[in-house]
């Protein structure tokens, strides 16, 4: 895939400023600010109900923020995501996965990945008119789309299941497919919402490798995760939320040592004993 032109490393790809979200009387996200650096893996952690998924939904345009700013420094210059409609955010280069997997279960694995490349393909079809007559340009575009899909299928080890319906895959494979599908949109920022939920330790391990592979290809990653093993090992930076407020922000080592984090989230005991919470995210 053609590597998108990215801001230099150590420049923020995503800037969240004073983000505020109210649902009626409930303040789910209360003036949260953080940066996600280009080429970094930024983890957002926090206890249940801390507002992590709300932050994700705000970044990806599923909610409109009650206040604050979200700016994406993508290849096309700074883009205010808080004032952009949902599908345009994805077109600007923000891809996401969902806490409860959202595939197209009745379509094959390959079709799932081609739907992800809808906008590229649709542009090549002359908005459907040219393609109805099978013009050459569309065939070329489709070949390229299938090639890109094939690359991500190889990376996620799903190539031999390409022609099976997505709904028939085992759980772990569905998680990988959702990541592959997000990557087929050629994003600059990939938002993963609890990708390790429901995976066994070996699958979590493979997932961590996959995430690092994606990062190596130039895509920045924003990650919500409960599996502390994964978070502490692969993240460059960890943002901790509790009750909608940011309580810590730093490297994994700094966060680990932060007393407020230990009190709010990791518990009073030895942090190495913190169990992975795989099942809870699958609900």
């Amino acid at each position: 895939m053609s590597a998108p032109i990215l801001p230099a490393r150590n420049a923020p790809i995503l800037q969240v400023r004073e983000l505020l979200m109210r649902f009626g009387g409930l303040t789910a996200v209360n003036r949260v600010s953080f940066d996600a650096m280009a080429g970094d893996i930024t983890a957002v952690i926090g206890p249940n109900g801390a507002g992590k998924t709300t932050v994700f939904n705000l970044i990806t345009g599923f909610y409109k923020p009650s206040g604050g700013e979200i700016v994406l420094n993508g290849p096309g210059g700074p883009k205010p995501l808080h004032a952009t409609v949902g599908h345009r955010i994805a077109q600007a280069g923000v891809a996401r996965t969902f806490q409860n997997i959202r595939l197209f279960p009745g379509m094959t694995v390959l079709e799932n990945l081609l739907v992800a490349q809808h906008n590229t393909l649709q542009a090549a079809t002359f908005f459907g008119i040219g393609a109805a007559f099978g013009l050459g340009r569309y065939r070329q575009a489709e070949r390229e789309a299938v090639a890109l899909a094939r690359r991500w299928l190889e990376a996620t080890r799903l190539l031999d299941r390409a022609d099976d319906p997505a709904g028939a895959l085992p759980y772990g494979a569905q998680r990988r497919l959702e990541i592959a599908r997000a990557m087929c949109t050629n994003p600059v920022l990939l938002c993963l919402d609890e990708p390790a939920a429901g995976l066994n330790p070996r699958e979590s391990e493979e997932l961590a490798e996959l995430i690092q592979l994606i990062r190596a290809q130039g895509c920045s990653i924003l990650l919500i995760e409960h599996d502390m093993g994964v978070v502490m090992r692969i993240s460059d930076r960890v943002v901790v939320l509790d009750h909608g407020v940011k309580i810590a922000d730093g490297t994994p080592a700094e966060v680990r040592a932060d007393e407020r984090v230990i009190a709010a989230y990791l518990g009073e005991g030895d942090e190495d004993d913190v169990p992975a919470a795989p099942v809870e995210g699958a609900a």
């Binding site: 599908h87 081609l114 739907v115 649709q122 079809t125 459907g128 569309y138 599908r181 949109t185």
Partner: peptide, 22 residues
């Protein structure tokens, strides 16, 4: 075509479609 595939994807999961930029 992409359009027909997008229709079927819409039938399968509208929210996922939006997240993919459709």
């Amino acid at each position: 075509q992409p359009l027909g595939r997008a229709w079927e994807a819409l039938r399968e999961d509208e929210i996922a479609c939006r997240a993919l930029g459709i």
